[in-house]
Design a binder for these strands. Structure first.
Lengths: 335, 335
DNA sequence: TCCGGTTGTTGAAGCGTTTCGACAACGTTA
DNA sequence: TAACGTTGTCGAAACGCTTCAACAACCGGA
């Protein structure tokens, strides 16, 4: 291995000088600087990461804690990861992969051994058992998701409440007065998932605000159950002309269910989905996106900020973005 | 930070003794051992990874080089990653995430700075530009996939040739005598992808061996084109009673195409797919699996072996496994 | 009783960086 | 000309660990 001493010898300077050329923490004359740079290039020198970590007590590595369990939507996860890694690299950081199944134990390990300078934790739940640990660790962390209490943390999430409201507003602006809500499977509401409840809450509040009649039901993951839910929504509220769907698995069956009940999309019933953009694109559904890249990028930027000692807000909510598509095409009949 | 010196002081021994307790490289009396262990626990000591890396010139980290570009089948990738990470952890190693877009440059960086002890590179192509670099690096590497020349490397891959042959054998055993092959989009064969060609080769050779008439065609990613290919196969070989499909995107349209041409699955035409198991499961297709977990596990085990100085084979091919499902149900008419 | 061989423990030297204090060399100003 | 700040460079001391050579203490055998 070629060390800083080798470079120093080759360039005819002291090791410390080489170090200063590299870090720029002291002024170095242009001559020596180029001389040193040349030697570095010639010898193919790379600073030893471990030695550097030891001397600076900074590893320049962040841990990315990923939920690799079934049920997470992988395309979204991937886009998130890519964005996070890219952003980290832009700040000269590397990313250590920690799977969520290693649990709090795993976090303690990498934190304790000073392998990483900080944590990016995905898929945080309302009362996540990792949160207390993260709070008391010396290394900073940024969470994707929104636990019950964000005090003392740094969290990033889509503003699901606003997302629910955005759907209502879009539909209300198009003239709809009776709107249904097809939610996640009921277990999701029982479990403490937070984002599902918040979307519902935003939806309900916006409907009230706009004087719109709304009905909500959960939907399970199979065609039968989607059909049952949709039928039941229509029975409860026969005048319903629009449907907000917050359930990726159900999306594929919504149009079919409606059709089999004699309603066409968008002529009889308009549909707005809250889901990853590519899904919506594929099915030509008007949708509120899940801004994976943006979340990943922001989260990493916040983490870097904290690593550099800058204070950050406890909660950063990304505003929802709605993309209009065929499923809420302007309705001539209504205009 | 609590250091080894703190532990030593607390336990009333020398730092080296603590080290030996931890590494087990010298015999330590049971008394001191328990005493030291107790102090470690009490003080919550974790060895500093950087310091350790510096002293041992071993980081206990391997780089996982992932293709995060569109087109890779994410569920398979994820299962692979999970297996690799789990296996690494079992050997007390951590995993540094390197995205393929960082290219050879990125590999050089993490290798040069001694951040990692080895590389696990996914999705290697026939003439991958990273291969020369990997070959000359001091750190060992294991590749998933199969470049043109494997000499001096360690590669793991599914035995695609055997997979193609396995499909033929399965169908031949069921009594089929005229078999078609629906391949990947033609660009895949133009590009140097290797595995596609090898599957074809295995398929063709096995057909010859069993005295079976075979016809092969590529298929693009849309319904129209699948339909055209299937029709063309049937026209070329009207007696065709079985189809081998090596094209994940086309899978969903194969049954439909056949039906629209008046053939039912499996009664008129049996179908065998080469694809991830869950896809096959979902469509109830007899299939040869892509053993993601097994590949990940094996690859990491091989890497660990090389890190420990054990020699490894240049090429490890996993035998294909066929799962029988409804699409090749035993045919009463034929029996 | 003395010697050779274990066994358990230690002190110190290194691993490759960074960084602090020191200090020449140099222009500037008094 | 003397004193002084600046600028550029250096030497040495950390950082926290491993490991080697050395050694004390003990045991059994001659």
């Amino acid at each position: 291995m070629v060390t800083i001493a080798d470079v120093a010898r080759h360039a005819g300077v002291a090791p410390s000088t080489v170090s200063y050329v590299l870090t720029g923490k002291r002024s170095i004359s242009p001559q020596t600087r180029t001389k040193v740079r040349e030697s570095i290039r010639l010898l193919g020198y790379h600073p030893h990461a471990g030695a550097r970590a030891l001397a600076t007590s900074r590893a320049n590595v962040v841990a990315l804690v990923l939920p690799l369990r079934p049920g997470v939507h992988l395309p979204v996860l991937m886009r998130f990861v890519t964005a996070a890694v890219t952003t980290a690299r832009r700040h000269d950081m590397d990313v250590l992969l920690v799977t969520a199944d290693q649990g709090a134990q795993g976090l303690r390990r990498v934190a304790g051994s000073a392998q990483v300078d900080g944590f990016l934790v995905m898929d945080v739940e309302l009362d996540d058992d990792r949160v207390p640990l993260l709070r008391q660790m010396t290394q900073p962390s940024v969470l994707i998701g929104r636990p019950a209490a964000v005090k003392g943390l740094t969290c990033v999430d889509l503003d699901f409440e606003a997302a629910g409201a955005r759907c209502v507003d879009h539909l209300a602006d198009l003239g709809h007065r009776y709107i249904g809500f097809l939610g996640a499977p009921s277990v999701v509401y029982q479990r403490n998932t937070g984002y599902a409840q918040r979307t519902m809450a935003g939806f309900g509040a916006a409907a009230m605000r706009r004087g719109i009649a709304s009905t909500a039901l959960p939907a399970e993951d199979d065609y039968e159950s989607v059909l049952v839910s949709v039928r039941s929504l229509l029975r409860t509220q026969p005048a319903m002309t629009a449907l907000v769907v917050h359930n990726e698995a159900a999306l594929g069956w919504v149009a079919g269910s409606l059709r089999s009940l004699g309603r066409r999309v968008p002529d009889d019933v308009a549909v707005v989905a809250i889901c990853p953009d590519e899904l919506a694109e594929q099915m030509q559904l008007t949708s509120v996106q899940l801004p994976a890249e943006e979340l990943g990028r922001q989260a990493m930027e916040l983490l870097v900020a904290r690593l550099n000692g800058h204070p950050t807000a406890a909660l950063t909510l990304l505003p929802p973005k709605l993309s209009g598509r065929a499923s809420t095409a302007p309705r001539l009949r209504r205009a």
